[in-house]
Amino acid sequence: MGWSKVEYLETGDSYYAALLKEFAGAKKSVLMECYIFQMDSVGRALLEALSECQGRGLRVFLRLDGIGSRPDLSEIAAFCHERHVELEVFHPLPFAPLGTYHSVGFAKADSFLNRLRLMNRRSHRKIAIVDETIGFTGGRNVDEVQSEKVVGKEAWHDLSLRLEGDGVQELLQAFLFRPVHKKQFKDCLVNYSSKLRRDRNNWLAKQMKDAKKRLWITTPYFAPTPRMLLELRKAAKDGVDIRLILTKKIDVLVSQLAARGLYRQLIRWGIKVYEYQPSLLHRKMWVIDDLGIVGSANFNHRSLVHDLEIDVILRDPAVVSEAMRLSLEDQNASRAISLEDMAKVNFVKRFLSWIAGWFSYWL
């Protein structure tokens, strides 16, 4: 069981190139799911590749989120309809026309009221599966902001994985929303049912509680639940080396304000807090002792309480060692935040962080 091969794709360009290569060599099927899919140069190249797969008689299936991909959804839907690429939209907005795609999600019927009721639950997952033997996941969307070829050094700092092994079948089960009744997660962390969400959070809390040496968390959006904050505090009290690598540059200001409102108490607990400097850090990665976790989930309420996420569990020592190396590189490119820094924060920023904290449940 597990992953027979794990390849870290550190740049957006390497990730998109790997997708295009696997799509070109696919023999049976290509399945893809994404939160944000932009109809830019990156998105068009991938859509053309999916269209070519469809033309070769492969099963091709694309699922996008109804809010994350909303800006270009009409154009994407028109392209897929013309090229006969099957498109599903997860929880479309209430007023969005059904158009030429299928509505999918947790509503028993596609209606205005059901769309309104489920509007807060998004699919934040990033998955690609080729021939049911090769999988991709991580934090990257389909967007030029992830490409150094397009935006240069301002490209978002993210991470994707190319995966082979028995674990791809678990990734496939998650993609297809098939029922899972096991509490013990083997290769993937999933949360596409209330039970799985509860089990996932319990599993994560237990890993934090059982940590003995290190708990290194890389996430751009930090607004954990009270339970997870308590686990952080307990681990710090037990002497675990806890490091939080967050981001200086941000696209959701209220999220950063809420996170910075927690810095003072985190540092007082003995937790090291860093802010990545070169570009917007969008990477989601954990190293817990000798265990690694990489995927789409942030350490915030949205990922813990609301949205659908997918993460893979890494246990091979060499693979986890590589995750540690990447984490240390990110720390070296970050600025450590101190209590002296927090003392310099003016009243207005502290007040805004306090206000943002009240909205943490939605962040």
Rank of each mutant, 00 (worst) to 15 (best):
A26K: 09
S160T: 02
L215S: 01
A336D: 06
S69W: 13
L171I: 01
V30E: 01
L326V: 02
S255M: 08
A223R: 04
D290V: 10
I76D: 04
L62R: 10
G261V: 07
W216H: 07
R315I: 00
K27W: 07
I310N: 07
H282D: 08
A205W: 01
K248A: 09
K234L: 15
E164K: 12
L93S: 13
S255W: 00
L9V: 02
S296E: 04
L189C: 05
L50Q: 05
F136H: 12
D210G: 05
S194M: 03
F351Q: 13
T11G: 00
Q265S: 13
R260C: 01
D241S: 05
P97D: 11
D72V: 04
E275N: 07
L73F: 01
S338W: 11
G68D: 06
L291I: 14
K27I: 06
L64P: 00
S338N: 03
T100A: 15
H102Y: 06
L262V: 11
I67N: 09
S360C: 13
K182Q: 12
V319H: 15
N332H: 14
D166W: 01
F23I: 11
V345A: 11
F90W: 15
F185A: 10
N141W: 02
F136N: 11
L339R: 01
Y8D: 03
H306W: 13
Q331T: 06
F177H: 11
F37C: 03
M39G: 00
H102L: 14
S353L: 07
H282K: 10
Q265T: 12
D158A: 14
R302W: 04
G167Y: 07
N300C: 15
I242L: 01
V85G: 02
F90P: 00
R59S: 13
A343T: 04
V104W: 05
D251S: 14
K108S: 11
L229I: 06
V142L: 07
R268I: 00
L163M: 09
K108N: 15
L9R: 10
A18V: 04
Q331G: 04
L215E: 01
I245N: 03
S51C: 11
V287Q: 02
V190Q: 05
V240C: 02
D251C: 08
S279I: 01
S194V: 00
W354H: 12
Q277I: 15
L281D: 04
A235S: 07
S296D: 04
G57Y: 11
L87T: 05
S255D: 12
E164I: 00
S303A: 15
V348Q: 05
V150N: 03
F347H: 14
S353P: 06
V42H: 03
Y274K: 12
A297I: 06
L281H: 04
V312D: 07
L326N: 05
Y101H: 14
